[in-house]
């Protein structure tokens, strides 16, 4: 019976669905990876995503300009990242708590702006599906990987870029040094504050894009709490990935595929309670981590403020 349910086209649909679902997680989690690698935990990702989602939606709603929407989401994300950096780096505030504050602010502010500037739920025409020439013609693979919108491709492109920056550039070396041993990095002339400002701001910018990917590419709507806690899952995926972009990708994909699968299981009417189906991606993410038995140590200075002794 199960064999009937898993026909080829179904499987392709499931995989394509997982690829799409992972998009916002990837943007947010890769951004957060940069911040955490340099020692800053930003729990405010979800709030920044919401502000990004609203900004992008607003631009597209008013002007139809998709690129403009992404750019504004980036700018808003960047500014909120900058604010988070100021709070956690310059003011050395406790990172977890300031993140919760940023989250609450974004959650409330995005809805407030929505109510005052748009006021009712509307849809926009977001990024259309843009099949990649030639690649999308490949049977099966083309449908799974190369028939999405531009922001989906962007998320996956981000993974090798992030990997390259972290592992093959001086900047990456500095980021990791600041996250592992800020005193030593400082002694070697690396400005801990500058690096952390940079990574947290990048994280904010990417969270903004993550929000935009929801509001003007995947869902094409905005409403109160559009992300529904997605940013927190993204943070969990950073831990899942052990602060390595490739493993963050793995985590995002596993989580998203299982989510796509549980929807499918319900749709075809396999009789398990909907609540248990909804739980599975969350349980499996933990189980996979336990089985894979990774022994990755977090960056030593994560969540620790660095105060220069003058």
């Amino acid at each position: 019976m199960l064999a009937d349910l898993f026909t080829g086209s179904v499987l392709i649909g499931l995989l394509a669905s997982g690829i799409r679902l992972a998009t916002p997680y990837l943007y947010a989690a890769i951004g957060e990876t940069f911040g955490q690698r340099s020692g800053v935990l930003n729990l405010g990702v979800d709030g920044i995503m919401l502000m990004g989602a609203f900004s992008a939606f607003y631009v597209v709603f008013k002007t139809g300009d998709l690129v403009g929407g992404v750019l504004l989401a980036m700018l808003v994300g960047l500014l909120m990242g900058l604010a988070m950096a100021f709070i956690s780096v310059t003011l050395n505030a406790e990172q977890g708590i300031s993140g919760i504050g940023v989250y609450l602010f974004g959650l409330g502010m995005s809805d407030l702006l929505f109510q005052k500037l748009i006021n009712n739920v509307q849809t926009v025409s977001g990024f259309p599906v843009a099949p990649i020439p030639f690649l999308s013609d490949i049977p099966i693979v083309g449908q799974i990987f190369f028939t999405h919108n531009v922001l989906v491709y962007g998320a996956y492109l981000l993974v090798p870029i992030a990997w390259f920056v972290l592992n093959k550039t001086t900047l990456g070396l500095k980021i990791k040094a600041v996250g592992e041993n800020p005193e030593a990095a400082d002694t070697l002339g690396v400005s801990v504050a500058k690096i952390r400002y940079l990574t947290v701001t990048i994280g904010g910018l990417l969270s903004g894009v993550a929000g935009a990917s929801l509001s003007i590419a995947l869902l094409n709507v905005f409403q109160f709490n559009l992300t529904n806690g997605l940013g927190f899952i993204a943070i969990a995926l950073v831990y899942f990935g052990g602060w390595r972009p490739t493993w963050v990708l793995m985590g995002s994909l596993i989580f998203s595929f299982v989510n796509a699968l549980q929807i499918w299981v319900q749709v075809v009417g396999i009789p398990i309670p909907s609540d248990i189906a909804v739980m599975t991606p969350y349980i499996l993410t933990i189980v996979v981590l336990v089985i894979s038995a990774q022994r990755v140590r977090p960056p030593s200075a994560l969540t620790k403020a660095y105060e220069r002794l003058e």
């Binding site: 869902l219 749709v267 909804v278």
Partner: peptide, 11 residues
């Protein structure tokens, strides 16, 4: 029929 387990999860 599928129930997604939430009133808010648009995605």
């Amino acid at each position: 029929v599928n129930y997604i387990g939430s009133f808010g999860d648009v995605a």
